[in-house]
Computed example of a mutant assay.
Amino acid sequence: MTRGRVVVGVSGSLGSLAALRAAVDEARGGGSPLLAVTAWEPPEGEALFARNPDSAWARHQEDLARAALERAVQEALGKMPSDVAARKLVVRGKAGPVLCALAGRPGDLLVIGARPGGWRGPVRRHVRRHAPGCVLTVPAPPRPRRTARALRHARAEDFALHG
């Protein structure tokens, strides 16, 4: 069996940051190239965008997605590893179909992050049904219990800049 690529979906969530770290480890361990992917769509949806297309708006949204990918790599790894053939890719489309299409070569491994609790998200559901090869699901690290409780009771004033 030929070794394929390690394709990882990166959204900036805690689960995707953990998935990015795991994907780097998988790529290192198998001598595989790494492809970090962020998928994006116009916030109003493709149907509404098609009614009133604006290329400047689309470029702006793509730039935001690219910046989010850069931020996620910075948060998860500091920088892309130099000991792995790594590439970052920003693709327009729904995340599930984009990731399944990119991880469609023989031997490819698709790595995605997950919130605690399984296959609830739309990307994970799509990947579960349509992934052509192996999928590694990496759980997000759990939040400390007190932090979650404090955030539930937080008010807007708690986040205001002071001083």
Rank of each mutant, 00 (worst) to 15 (best):
R105I: 00
A68Q: 14
W57A: 15
R92L: 04
A47S: 09
L77F: 10
G107F: 11
F49M: 06
P33V: 00
V111N: 03
P106M: 10
R115D: 02
E62V: 05
G93C: 10
A86L: 01
R59M: 05
N52Q: 04
P106N: 05
P106C: 11
V73A: 10
G30Q: 08
A65E: 12
E26V: 08
W119A: 09
G30W: 11
G31S: 10
M80T: 02
P97D: 11
A36Y: 00
K94S: 15
D83T: 01
L64K: 13
L20A: 02
A27R: 01
A47K: 04
R28D: 03
A39W: 09
L99H: 03
F49V: 02
M80C: 01
G104N: 15
S55L: 10
T38Q: 12
A76Y: 15
V37D: 06
S82Y: 00
P33R: 02
E46R: 15
A72K: 14
V24P: 02
V91R: 12
G107C: 10
L34P: 00
C100E: 09
L102T: 05
G45T: 13
E62G: 12
A101W: 04
L110G: 13
A85M: 00
V37Y: 04
R92C: 09
R92K: 13
S82Q: 02
L110C: 11
G118M: 13
V73M: 11
R92D: 02
R59W: 02
L77E: 08
L64N: 08
A101D: 14
N52R: 04
A114Q: 11
D54P: 01
D63R: 14
G113P: 07
L99V: 06
P97V: 08
L48Y: 08
P106I: 09
W119S: 06
G29A: 13
R66F: 04
G30S: 12
L48G: 04
H60T: 13
L77G: 11
A114N: 01
D25H: 09
P43E: 04
A19T: 10
A114P: 01
K94G: 13
R71P: 05
E62S: 14
A76W: 13
A65K: 05
P97R: 10
R87A: 06
R105T: 00
L34V: 01
G93Y: 06
G96A: 13
P106V: 08
R115Q: 08
P81G: 03
V84P: 00
K88D: 00
P33Y: 01
G107P: 09
W40H: 06
A114D: 01
E70P: 04
R21C: 05
V90R: 07
G113F: 06
G118F: 06
L77Q: 11
A27W: 01
G96D: 13
D25K: 09
L109D: 09
E44Y: 03
R105G: 11
